[in-house]
Simulated scan of single mutants.
Amino acid sequence: MLGYFGPKGTFTHQALRTVSDDEAIAFPSVRAALDAVRTGEVRAAVVPIENSVEGGVSATLDELIAGSPLAIIGEIVIPVEFGLYAREELRLEDIRQVLTHGHAAAQCREWLATHLPNANITEAGSTAGAAAEVSRPDSHYDAAVSARVAGRLYGLTELAYQIEDNPGAVTRFVLVGRPGPLPGRTGADKTTLVAYMREDHSGALLEILQQFAVRGVNLSRIESRPTKTTLGSYCFSIDAEGHAHDRRMAEALEGLHRICPTVHFLGSYPRADKVRPSIGIGFSDAEFDEASAWVQGLDRETVTRD
């Protein structure tokens, strides 16, 4: 059975349905969903990890390494489209109280300021929870900003749709399970890890980045996260293009292992967009193998010359 960061009607629920129609368990927080994977209550869980407007989801980035090891085994990317929903047909100028999640409010800020200048915007735990609250006959909220799936789920009237300020915005979700054999290489893969600096000094981040750069590995995301030990102590959450079984990625991981006190490897998995990385000259597996064979043959060449 799968789990997900709920409740029903959220974008996470929508993402889950792209990979499974089976019964799934909704959890009230990212931590609860990932802990359920750790205990075996569910075999895997879907949680949000990155939004094209708001950036990384801090709760997920932190909780992935907060307990016993977990592994990302897949990713899902879906468009983020919001609507304004009420119990009944209302004029926009009559709306005074709007309930929504903080991220939704941020992504619809301009539209709300333009069309609902006199409304109070209150944050809820989720957009689906906001829709559920507005659907109550005794609710003092006039409308909710949520996904269309939530508006329909709770029988609300759609007053406006696609009110997000950034058309084309997407949210990336990951399917997280317990560690096991890596999914096979597809040629369009991504690797996620968290690297810690050995000490804070000039060039410490550069040393980490060089492990990828000198091996032709492109990074699609890098974010600093506090280690929660001392002020100014940070680690780096990284998405890199490629699979751990690719020679260039494997050598980059080996380099990180040498220079970092801790590296949390969170998995290699197929990219949702199926885009293959551009591999520069000298960085294909065949070229790594040829170079290794050349080095191994140096002794024989020396003996022959003697």
Score class of each variant (00 low, 15 high):
residue 21 D to L: 14
residue 21 D to A: 10
residue 21 D to E: 13
residue 21 D to S: 15
residue 21 D to P: 07
residue 21 D to V: 14
residue 21 D to G: 09
residue 22 D to Q: 14
residue 22 D to K: 07
residue 23 E to M: 10
residue 24 A to E: 06
residue 24 A to Y: 02
residue 25 I to A: 01
residue 25 I to H: 00
residue 25 I to P: 00
residue 26 A to H: 02
residue 26 A to C: 08
residue 27 F to W: 04
residue 27 F to M: 03
residue 27 F to T: 06
residue 28 P to N: 07
residue 28 P to R: 04
residue 29 S to A: 13
residue 29 S to R: 02
residue 29 S to P: 09
residue 29 S to W: 02
residue 29 S to Y: 04
residue 29 S to M: 05
residue 30 V to E: 08
residue 30 V to H: 13
residue 30 V to P: 11
residue 31 R to Y: 06
residue 31 R to C: 06
residue 31 R to A: 14
residue 32 A to R: 08
residue 32 A to F: 08
residue 32 A to Q: 08
residue 32 A to Y: 08
residue 32 A to K: 09
residue 33 A to W: 02
residue 33 A to P: 13
residue 34 L to K: 03
residue 34 L to P: 10
residue 34 L to Y: 01
residue 35 D to T: 02
residue 35 D to H: 11
residue 35 D to N: 03
residue 35 D to Y: 05
residue 36 A to N: 11
residue 36 A to I: 12
residue 36 A to M: 14
residue 36 A to K: 10
residue 36 A to L: 11
residue 37 V to T: 03
residue 37 V to K: 04
residue 38 R to F: 00
residue 38 R to S: 00
residue 38 R to P: 05
residue 38 R to Y: 01
residue 38 R to G: 00
residue 38 R to E: 00
residue 39 T to V: 08
residue 39 T to E: 05
residue 39 T to W: 06
residue 39 T to Y: 05
residue 39 T to K: 06
residue 39 T to N: 04
residue 40 G to H: 08
residue 40 G to P: 10
residue 40 G to F: 12
residue 40 G to T: 10
residue 40 G to Y: 10
residue 41 E to N: 05
residue 41 E to G: 00
residue 41 E to W: 13
residue 42 V to K: 01
residue 42 V to I: 07
residue 42 V to Q: 01
residue 42 V to R: 02
residue 42 V to T: 08
residue 43 R to F: 04
residue 43 R to P: 06
residue 43 R to A: 07
residue 43 R to H: 14
residue 44 A to N: 12
residue 44 A to H: 07
residue 44 A to Y: 07
residue 44 A to S: 08
residue 44 A to V: 05
residue 45 A to L: 06
residue 45 A to M: 12
residue 46 V to M: 05
residue 46 V to I: 14
residue 46 V to P: 11
residue 46 V to T: 14
residue 47 V to Y: 02
residue 47 V to E: 04
residue 47 V to C: 09
residue 48 P to H: 04
residue 48 P to I: 01
residue 48 P to Q: 02
residue 48 P to R: 03
residue 48 P to T: 03
residue 48 P to L: 06
residue 49 I to Q: 09
residue 49 I to A: 06
residue 49 I to C: 10
residue 49 I to N: 11
residue 50 E to T: 02
residue 51 N to P: 01
residue 51 N to G: 14
residue 51 N to Q: 06
residue 51 N to M: 03
residue 52 S to A: 13
residue 53 V to G: 11
residue 53 V to S: 15
residue 55 G to M: 07
residue 55 G to P: 15
residue 55 G to Y: 09
residue 55 G to Q: 06
residue 56 G to I: 14
residue 56 G to H: 13
residue 56 G to Y: 13
residue 56 G to P: 12
residue 57 V to C: 14
residue 57 V to D: 09
residue 57 V to F: 15
residue 58 S to C: 12
residue 58 S to W: 09
